[in-house]
Design a protein around this nucleic acid. Structure first.
Length: 118
DNA sequence: AGCATGACGAACA
DNA sequence: GTGTTCGCCATGC
């Protein structure tokens, strides 16, 4: 539950949620990619912070968002920490040592997918 | 106000 | 490739 956010934060959150919702099934992206897409390439921490608040929203597949290394850094924040991996595996991805196998292949960059393409 | 932390990332040694 | 440091913005003490 967010106690005090400004309009600026709200806009940032809304953008993050919107991008995350647009992530195709079986694809993943990184916090940095989202922050970059929003224009704040170095505020990737805020993306993670937004995800923390987003984890209460069913429309926001936070499990499709990992760090640039393809590592499931946020798995510990899910209800069962293993849920994140399970969801990804259910979408056809393979996880090993909390890391996405062939992460580069499943990587989905909003800056490219949504910006370069119509 | 200052200090420490965080689902991160990039630069540097 | 690994370890350290800084930047980013917000939160908690």
């Amino acid at each position: 539950m967010i106690t005090s956010i400004n309009d600026k934060n709200k806009d940032f959150f809304a953008n993050v949620y919107d991008v995350v919702r647009m992530i195709p099934k079986g694809k993943v992206t990184s916090y940095g990619a989202i922050s970059n897409y929003l224009g704040s390439a170095r505020s990737s921490r805020m993306v993670g912070w937004a995800m923390n608040a987003a984890h209460g929203l069913k429309d926001v597949p936070a499990h499709r968002v990992v760090n640039r290394n393809g590592l499931l850094t946020g798995k510990m924040h899910f209800n069962p920490p293993s849920l994140m991996q399970e969801l990804l595996e259910k979408e056809g991805l393979k996880i090993e040592k909390d890391q996405i196998v062939n992460f580069k292949y499943y990587y989905w960059d909003p800056k490219i997918e949504l910006g370069l393409n119509d």
